[in-house]
Amino acid sequence: RAGKAREAQLLERQHVTMEGLFKQIESGKLKEIRIVLKVDVQGSLQVLKEALPGLSTDEVKLKLLHSSAGAITEGDVLLADASDALIIGFHVDVEPRAAEAAKDRGVEIKNYTVIYQAIDEMKAALEGLLEPELVEKNTGTATVKEVFRISRVGAIAGCIMTGGKIERTNSVRLIRDGKVVHTGKIESLKRFKDDVKEVVEGYECGIKISNHDDVRKNDVIQGFMVEKVARKLDKKK
């Protein structure tokens, strides 16, 4: 019973771990990584004390709660436990009581032997905290050859694909005389009477734009998608 109670307690208290870090990043729950840093000698301490906080940006932070030379102690584990921090060690031992406390409390200890491996791993974690850049990518264009107005349906643009492809899931811009007059979603995409997922260059299709019926002959429908592009720490806002 005591073992099950301990497991239940650990499940309730979800500490930051490298394995779980990216899950928290994806859910948007984490914008700061807190670190307890222990190293072998003062020289290593100085390098890491400068390098790790230096990775922070206005959007994401790496915060050193405590840093010193020496073995990882039970006190380090208690601090990490109370602060939801990771313990980062460099060429140091973990005292037996510290190892036991870390296991009991679900605190992760990461011990490195190469100093820049620690820096690179923290940099990758912080980059994962950055909001991705949203980039629009044009997929294809279609020219409206005829407009069919159907009762209780609305305007169906009879088109010829003039470049690339348009997919049912794309967003679209309606362009008239070189100006964008509407941006919206595709309600339906058809080849003859059949619903299709995409239409490519050279083929005819029928496009119904959601909640928009002001479509005219010779309008251009441009399909596009929005991609999320991972950002790097040197791309600050």
Rank of each mutant, 00 (worst) to 15 (best):
A2E: 13
A2H: 10
Q9P: 02
L10C: 04
E12S: 10
T17P: 07
M18N: 04
E19N: 12
E19A: 12
L21F: 06
F22H: 13
F22K: 13
E26V: 14
S27M: 08
S27L: 12
K31F: 11
I33E: 09
V36I: 15
L37E: 02
L37W: 08
K38F: 00
K38H: 05
K38Y: 06
Q42H: 14
Q42G: 05
L45E: 03
L45W: 00
L45P: 02
K49E: 14
P53R: 10
T57Q: 07
D58Y: 03
E59L: 11
E59T: 01
L62W: 08
L62T: 04
S68M: 10
A69T: 13
A69P: 04
A69I: 06
A69D: 01
G70E: 06
A71S: 13
A71I: 00
E74F: 05
E74R: 08
D81S: 12
D84G: 00
A85P: 12
L86V: 04
I88V: 13
V94I: 11
E95R: 03
E100R: 00
A101I: 07
A101R: 01
A101M: 07
R105L: 15
G106E: 10
G106T: 10
G106Q: 10
E108V: 08
I109W: 05
T113S: 13
V114W: 05
A118F: 02
D120R: 03
M122R: 07
L130D: 03
L130P: 02
E131V: 09
P132R: 08
P132S: 13
L134K: 15
E136A: 13
E136W: 06
A142I: 03
V144E: 06
F148H: 04
I150C: 11
I150E: 08
R152N: 15
R152C: 01
A155F: 01
A157E: 02
M161W: 02
G163C: 00
G164R: 03
K165H: 12
K165G: 00
E167Q: 13
S171M: 14
I175D: 01
D177I: 00
D177K: 07
K179N: 15
V180N: 12
T183N: 12
K185V: 08
F192T: 09
K193L: 12
K193Y: 04
D194V: 04
D195V: 01
V196D: 12
V199Q: 04
V199K: 05
V199M: 09
Y203Q: 08
S210F: 09
H212A: 09
H212Q: 05
V215F: 05
R216F: 06
K217E: 14
I221E: 03
Q222W: 03
F224K: 06
F224T: 06
F224P: 01
E227A: 09
V229W: 05
A230Q: 13
R231D: 03
K232A: 11
L233Q: 11
L233T: 07
